[in-house]
Structures are given as C-alpha cells and as structure tokens.
Design a protein around this nucleic acid. Structure first.
Lengths: 345, 345
DNA sequence: TTGAAAGCGCTAACAC
DNA sequence: GTGTTAGCGCTTTCAA
C-alpha cells in the first residue's frame, strides 16, 4: 500500500484534499469531476492525477444535498420470495437505471402492518416511491398519496385516490379463463383464493362470480399463494364436487396438480386446472399448465414511466391498465362425462 | 387541502420553516425531532404541532451528510429473474432492516462487463456493498476490495483478495451428490454446466471430476441456467450414453426431466436426474427431484453480519463457508440393468 | 433549557 | 479560465 492508499483507508478524501494537493481551487476540481465547464488541459490533468493518487470519490450525499435530489427511488415489495415481484423489479430496475436512478428495495414479508412505516422511511430517503401490490388500508394509501413526491401504485387500483397506478386487467383475465373453461363444457368449478388483502385476488373473484351469468358456477375456496397451499387444498377441493379449479397463481395450481395426481385423479381427463402468471415452469410441467400471462416486465417499465412523468410534473395520467393473455395448455380439457370426476356420489 | 398542505405540495418544508412558525430556534426543532436532549414540554408540543401542520419530514440527505453515513447498503445481483438471488436478498434485507439499513439493489442482467461500473456507483451512494455471485474478473474484484468501505462477496471465493466472503461449500455438495449416484450404482453420468463465469459451477465441476477416483466418470455438457436450456440439452445428453445427469440447478434439471419424458425416457427407471438449490417446486414435480439445498436465507444474514462487523472495523473474519444438504427424492434410482438406458447401441 | 454559529462535502453564482 | 463565497438542510459544540 502506498502512503496515499493508506491515508484513503483511514479517512475519506474530500474535494478539498484534492484541491490542496493539486494546488487549485475546489471549484476547479469540481469542474474537472463534472466535466461540464471548460478547464485548462494542464490543470485538468494535474487534478485527475491527484484524484487517482488519493483515490478520491465524490460524496453522493453532498451532491444530493446541493442538487435537491438523491437519484434513488424506493420500492415496497410484499414478498421477495414470490417470483412475481422480482420480475416486476427487474423491468423497473432497468428502466430506472437508464435514467440514472437506483432502487432502494424494502420487503415487508407480507406483513401489511409494516407497509406504512417502511413506505414513509423509504420516501424520506428517496425521490419517489413505487408500491407493488400494497396490502395497506385505503386510508394509509391516501396518506401516502398526499405526500408531495412521485408515487406509483402497481397491481392495485383504488378509486378516489390521486395516485398514479399501473395494473393488469385482472377482471378481464379471469373472465377469459372462465370463458375458456365454460367453452370446454365446465359448469361448476372452484376458485382457490389468494392472500386476503390482495387486490388481484379480489378482482379475479369478482370476475369469476360474474361468470354465473354464462352458466358457470364458481365456488370459492380459501387457499393461499404457494405450492403447499395448493397441495393441501386438494382434499377440500375434491369435496366440492367440481370439474375444474382456477388457482390464484401457478404455484398453487402446480401444487394442486401434484396433489390430484397423488390422489389418483388424472389431469386433465378427470379434472382441469389453471393458474395465473405463466411462470416459466408452467410450460414444462406434466401436463403443461393452462395459465394467464401477465406482462411483468411492462409493469415495471410502465411504473418507471409514471414516476418520471410525475417528476417532470406532467399532468396526472390515467391509470395504465395492461392486458394479459390466456395461454391454453394441456391441463385443461373437457370435463369427464359424468357430472363429477371425483368419484363422490 | 389546507393552506399548509398546499404549501407542502409546492416546496419541501425545512427545519427553518418549522422553527420560524413555532417561534423557536432550529436547534430546538432538531432536538424535538431527535428526542435525545430534553426540551421544555410546552415548546416541544408547539414544535410537534407545527411539524404536523406543515407536514415537515426531515431530509435524510442532510442528516446523512452530517452523520457521515447514509444508512444504505448496495447489493449487486447478476439476475433478479433467477430465484436464488431474491431468496438471498430476502434474508439480507431482513437483517439489514433490523439494524436500520436499507438496500440499494442493482441488477446487471448477467452482463458481467456492467458489474464494475455499477458496483462503483453503488459504493459511491451507500455505506457498503454486497456482491452476489460476482462474475467480474479477479482484477476488478481486487480493485473493489481496495476501496475503504465494507464489502462482502457472496457465493464466490477468491483466494488472495482481502475481502470477506460468504459461500456454500459447493465442492462438498457436488461430491455428496456424486456419492449418492455412485452409491446407487451409476458409473458414467453427465454434468450440465451452468453460466461460464459462475464460481459455483466451477467448484461443482471440480468436485465431480474428482469423483473419478471413486469410479464415477462425469462428462461435462455446456448447458446454461434455465428450463429451456435443460429441455434442449436432452438430445445431446442422450448421445452421451450416460445413466444419470446432474444439472447446474433445479430449473435445468426440471427442463431435462420434461425433455426426457417427452422423448419417452422414464425417470428414474431409465435415467436419473438431480439438481441444485432445492427450489420449492422440486418437492412437487413428477417424480420429485433429488436436489441439494443451499441455505439461502443464511447466506443473506451472514453477509449482513460481515458488513456490520466491518463497519465496526472488527478484525477481518475468515470466509464463512455454509454447508448444504442433499435431499434425495424420486428422480434418482439405480441405473437400468443394461449399461445404457438411452436405447442406443 | 435554549440559541447562535460552525461545518458536513459539494455545486453554482458571481467576480476577477 | 479560475477562484472566492454563499449556501443545500441538518446536527452539534459552545455560550448564555
């Protein structure tokens, strides 16, 4: 280690240290670092050499203070273990980085009581906030919307709150899945419900109930959001005496398929199963899973667009509603001839 | 909106605005906000009322500047879409938040050339850095290690670099998987290799080659890290005339299983398959997948412990090497009687 | 107990 | 083209 390096290891080098050693003013150093104003080539070289020697790296904090912006955007995620969120995060991250922004990510582990304090803390240290599927109350959402900072809400739409939103048309998606099953001949199916405070779940259930008008009876069954929840719901599902099940997401659907096959129920001959999200594995399961593909990357990118628009104080845009696509695969087919496939009388 | 609220919407309220309106000094406001020093109850009440009215929220940036720390830790992730990383991130996030730190997450999308600039940018705006499975060159890693900030490297160990590391004993893990297969009677198997610059892949391959000493020949096959890579590798795999395949991760393994079954090869009767990671789905596939469980949550927590230790400038700890557990399931069994299961002569 | 003032590291007028 | 100076919003000595 050179002396300079050892010094660097002890305390942070400031712009003044550089100025002193290069025998110029701090302004000149600042100008060299930013490269906007013209500086004498000789001086600039000298400064750059000293910067190198000292290992000087400007303090982003000080820059933020004077600039009035941090270059940071907060993101609130219910659960990083649910692959839907990292996917959205990925799209958001790329878009934000293109504009020179970084993401401060906080996960609440599906503890919705934690959302509000975490959101406020994020907002205090960033320039804006993206809420992914917030489970918080309408009042809490309202309170956040009142804070004069760019905020975007993804995967939840709350009427009457002045907040930009990006959603998928879950109602429409669920309805087309219902249509797909009705078209195959199903008349009585189950919907395995997701997390209690999930907006998507609410929308889907609303849509599935509406399918009654088309001769499709949909029975709700509380379930959850992962494989095990699906696997364990199989017994109750069989009791319902239905010919198909729509699950809150593909994990649940795959858990159900696994459980049905373990119980000797064949999919799709005896029973049809469908999910939401079209996770990569859906195409490779046995049988491949019918699902609804949500444009996860677009959700992230669109969220960033809205954040950026709000930073430029462009007029409040409408909620962006993206649409999803049904992907029919081998897990759904005509119901068995007998009214019930479950072997119950 | 009250006048105060409208004002808040226009410009940020500073501590001085509060001081002026409450007719106290900024010092007093600061003291009330931080609550460490004693302040006259009457004044404190007045200040708090004004804070509320004005919607004052202290600037984290200004606080950071004076405190000399941001309360932020950077995390570099190769790819958010690979579920291994969000899992580690989750553990890291919880541990960091307990200590009042937030995570600035940046994904490089497996573009290892981007890692260095992104890492430096992260480090400029945070108090420390966690590198997850960095693909960067040894030189780049060395350069980062030289920066006087807490840095921890997860899932890669580089001898000769003064950097704290947290890894899983991939060599040992791969070796026990090899032992499992050898114990079942396999003598010639394939290893489907992962991303080129992956440290885990290198360690595993090193271990699998060593298994030759125990009578297990392992043939490498370039493959990748996702389902499709696995599915598409099946043809080449069959050509290798082996009785089992170890895949870089469970996604690849599941892709292989899907491809084998599509090709009429039965798992495990004709061919055994195993993977790494023990993703949730591994227990629910048909047949359930033999895998190696890595302690993902612990990786994150341990990484945080090292960051914290380095901030307290505790003596440089050894690299933490966590161990993994083999989880034998239905996808591995004795090889078929004939030397080859693939139907080739 | 309270306040005035200095200063965290940097940028941007404004003079020279 | 370069330097002096005044802040950005906050905390923290140090006096009163």
């Amino acid at each position: 280690l050179s002396n300079a390096e050892r010094a660097a290891a002890v305390a942070d080098i400031t712009i003044r240290d550089v100025a002193r050693k290069a025998e110029v003013s701090v302004t000149t150093v600042s100008r060299v670092m930013n490269g906007n104003t013209r500086v004498n080539a000789e001086l600039a070289r000298r400064v750059r050499r000293v910067v190198e020697e000292l290992g000087y790296r400007p303090s982003a904090t000080a820059r933020s203070l004077v600039a009035g912006r941090t270059g940071l955007i907060g993101v609130l995620v219910p659960d990083l273990a649910n692959p839907f969120y990292p996917s959205v995060l990925k799209g958001l991250s790329f878009a934000a980085e293109e504009s020179g922004y970084s993401l401060v990510v906080a996960s609440t582990g599906e503890q919705y009581q934690h959302e509000m304090p975490v959101a406020l803390r994020l907002l205090a240290q960033t320039d804006g906030l993206v809420l992914l599927s917030p489970r918080m109350s309408t009042e809490a959402l309202q309170e956040i919307a009142a804070i004069p900072r760019p905020v975007v809400c993804v995967n939840r739409f709350q009427a009457g709150i002045a907040m930009r939103c990006v959603t998928v048309d879950e109602y429409d998606a669920a309805l087309s899945l219902a249509g797909h099953l009705r078209g195959l001949g199903h008349k009585r199916i189950a919907y395995l419900r997701g997390p209690a405070r999930s907006w998507s779940d609410g929308e889907r259930w609303r849509a599935l109930r509406a399918a009654a008008a088309f001769g499709l009876e949909v029975l709700p069954l509380d379930c959850g959001a992962d494989l095990e929840n699906g696997f364990k719901a199989v017994d109750r599902l069989i009791d319902l005496d239905v010919t198909a099940a729509v699950a809150f997401n593909d994990y649940v659907a795959l858990g159900v398929m696994s459980g049905l096959q373990a119980a000797g129920v064949r999919v799709p001959q005896d029973f049809s199963v469908a999910g939401f999200d079209d996770i990569p594995f859906a195409a490779y399961s046995v049988p491949p899973l019918t699902s609804v593909r949500r444009p996860v990357g677009d959700l992230g990118r669109e969220a960033w667009r809205k954040i950026e628009a709000e930073m430029l104080s462009e007029p409040l845009l409408d909620t962006a509603v993206l649409s999803s696509t049904i992907v029919p695969r081998g897990s759904t087919a005509e119901p068995p001839r007998r009214s019930s496939s479950t072997g119950r009388p």
